[in-house]
Amino acid sequence: MTSVDVYRALGFSDEDREDAEKFTPDPVAVEDLVTQLRAGVGQQGTEPQLRMPEDTRNTVAALLATVPEIRQYHHERGIPDDISWATLADLGLQLQVSRRTHGEYGLATHWWLTIHWAGQIYALGRLQYMLYQVTEEKPVPGTEPGEWVVGVHIPESGPLTPELVDASFAQAREFFPRYFPEYPIKTMTLNSWLLDPYLLDNLPQESNMVRFGRRFTPYGTPTDSQDSAIFFTFRSHDLGKLDEFPQDTTLQRLVVSRIKQGGTWQNANGYTTF
């Protein structure tokens, strides 16, 4: 049974902890995922492709059951406890996001947490960083297929001030050579709707979001991602509610106005030196 202290370390709200404790898992579904998660710990290179339970509450139960395995992997790597728990606490954050989006206990982004439980991603200050390999199908400028890079991810944990971003980048540049020396890295990448050229050109240039996006050199062809803009701005997938979304910030107004004008938000890629 998971202790209150572990729930707290994993970022659970009291409401989500209570619902997790009340939930009766499907033992077959949970054990199947537990077996897959255990087999995937420490497997670097590509995102896990697992058979996931239909009821995402069973996914949470499996993740809780395998906390000892991923914690042991972190320990064997010498990764400090604060970084280990900060990384795994994305589970609690994602539960809160799911509750805000759907109004109930569950894990809509269940696939995302399998990356954490494989030991591929780490929370280092304001940002998260995921180890992966470049492929011929998804090249990165200045790298070769098979080369290791880190993908930057932006958790919902506050502003992207230049000071916090600088500190996070500095921490990442120390972390990976120390704890993953067999994976030499010289490039960081970002795939996000925050790199949409329209956003970077139409938000105030002194905003934290624009200053963050300008750190990355764009490459490749942007892809349509209307849902990402709506979900990450308003925590909704319903384009039919445009007139109901709050319009309190410049970003909120920009997201809605572009869609109403017939535009489409896009995901774009960028890279910078590690």
Rank of each mutant, 00 (worst) to 15 (best):
L160G: 04
F216H: 03
P184H: 09
V150S: 01
D16T: 09
S13W: 09
L254Y: 04
T161M: 04
R126F: 01
Q205M: 05
L251A: 07
T233F: 00
T24K: 13
E76D: 15
D227S: 08
R235V: 05
D26H: 08
M1R: 13
M1T: 12
L160K: 01
R17Q: 15
A86D: 13
D55G: 11
R71Q: 12
L160F: 11
W265A: 05
K186T: 15
Q96A: 14
L190A: 09
V150I: 15
L242S: 07
D243K: 11
L88V: 06
S236F: 07
L124F: 08
Y183Q: 14
N191T: 12
M188S: 10
Y132S: 10
V150C: 10
L107V: 09
A123S: 14
T250A: 15
G151L: 04
R214F: 02
S257N: 14
E182H: 10
T114E: 08
T223A: 12
Q266F: 00
E47N: 12
A86H: 06
V6C: 11
Y122T: 00
R8A: 13
R99G: 05
N269A: 06
P141K: 06
D14C: 05
L64V: 09
A62I: 08
D227A: 06
T87I: 03
Y105F: 15
D196H: 05
P68E: 12
N191H: 13
R51K: 14
D196A: 09
D248F: 06
E174P: 00
L88N: 00
D32C: 05
F169M: 11
W85A: 05
G42T: 09
T221D: 14
